[in-house]
Design a protein around this nucleic acid. Structure first.
Lengths: 122, 122
DNA sequence: TTATCATATGAACAAATGATCACATATAGG
DNA sequence: CCTATATGTGATCATTTGTTCATATGATAA
């Protein structure tokens, strides 16, 4: 369980608005947290991976099916799935030679839905 | 208002699971929609921009204050704000020489919160 | 065992990204 | 007008990213 911390740096100012800047600095995300959050979104920031996640939001799929669905090579898909695994966006289970992928949790579906909603409204 | 369409391509198969693949293909996001959704997440996928958005989720800020808060050059911040504007993640209002930025809508705050939540649970 | 199928991975390379620098624009005050 | 301040933008360049190709791993079938 990662806890978010806040920076408590000193407050030397350039612009006016010293107090606001000082307060905002105190509330700012720690570098490492910002990096991790960004990392998650970065993984979501690719059309191929969005297609994969969208397909997985409907049903569990094996690698070669995903490749067929998104019309890409198996290798490319495998590389992308690795990134998705690394970001804990998908999970998998092995069944003989096959590996079945699915969204890591319902939370991911929600994130995806929010992205879709964003491009929809306007 | 952008509507999401579904591809209705023919279904020539490689693997087994023809029906599942065929169905998943039919439900798949259109390239352009996947691209737009990914574009939004891509913009969220940078630590600097996450810090900026997080700061803006608390209060409206002008460019030079943001630069001070995230400890970066004004130019770099301006470039990032341009991307954030392009993705409709922030809006701004001019007041004399100053430009005040804020989140485009409360929806963005939610997206951000979901990203934070994702890195928190485990 | 050997052959085959499903998946993973390393190397390579073109394309995209993000910070910096220099400069442009725009507004306010003298 | 000229100067100072706040912000925006184009060019550059090192770094990262995503696909492809070749190959490795691992499981099943013959």
């Amino acid at each position: 369980m990662i806890q978010l911390h806040y920076t408590t740096d000193v407050c030397e100012e350039l612009c006016e608005h010293d107090q606001i800047v000082c307060l905002a600095k105190a509330e700012m995300l720690v570098d490492d947290d910002a990096r991790q959050i960004a990392e998650t979104f970065k993984i979501l920031g690719d059309p191929t991976r969005i297609k994969i996640l969208h397909a997985l939001s409907r049903r569990e799929l094996c690698v070669c099916d995903i490749a067929a669905i998104v019309a890409m090579g198996q290798s490319a898909v495998s590389h992308q799935l690795r990134l998705l695994r690394g970001a804990r966006l998908v999970k998998y289970r092995k069944e003989g030679k096959m590996v079945w992928y699915s969204l890591d949790d319902s939370h991911i579906s929600l994130l995806l839905a929010q992205g879709i909603e964003h491009i929809q409204h306007r």
